[in-house]
Amino acid sequence: MFGAFKPTNSLGGGLLWKIPWRLSKFQKARQRKRLRAVDTVVATLDKALAKKSITTKAVERWKEEMPVEQEMVPRDKYTIFDRKEKKYRKSIRKLPKWTRVSQRINPPGY
């Protein structure tokens, strides 16, 4: 309790919120579900436009650059690149509004 290396607690103004680094299996399942929902929206748009033989830059670019959920590696689904972090990765939950923004690709090699 006392000594040089005692942990700081909330009373001492220390760290109170302990956010787990990893997502739970349920959070990961919901994350995959959200990724697939976005894939469905893009697929629907693409199919509807293809019927009228229209191409849209936004849809084409997304299809070209972004992997679908099944093609992504788990590292990219649940973590993002951060240059300041140990091993250059942090949990995707650190991304502001992470359940409502798309974050699929990371720098190659990291």
Binding site: R34, A37, V38, T40, V41, V42, T44, L45, K47, A48, L49, K51, K52, I54, T55, T56, K57, A58, V59, W62, R100, V101, S102
Partner: peptide, 21 residues
Amino acid sequence: PVTPEVAGQIMKVKELVSVQE
């Protein structure tokens, strides 16, 4: 209606909506 303009708008908010044709 299915137009490129509407498709572009949907792409901006694709994380928030569900779309059917």
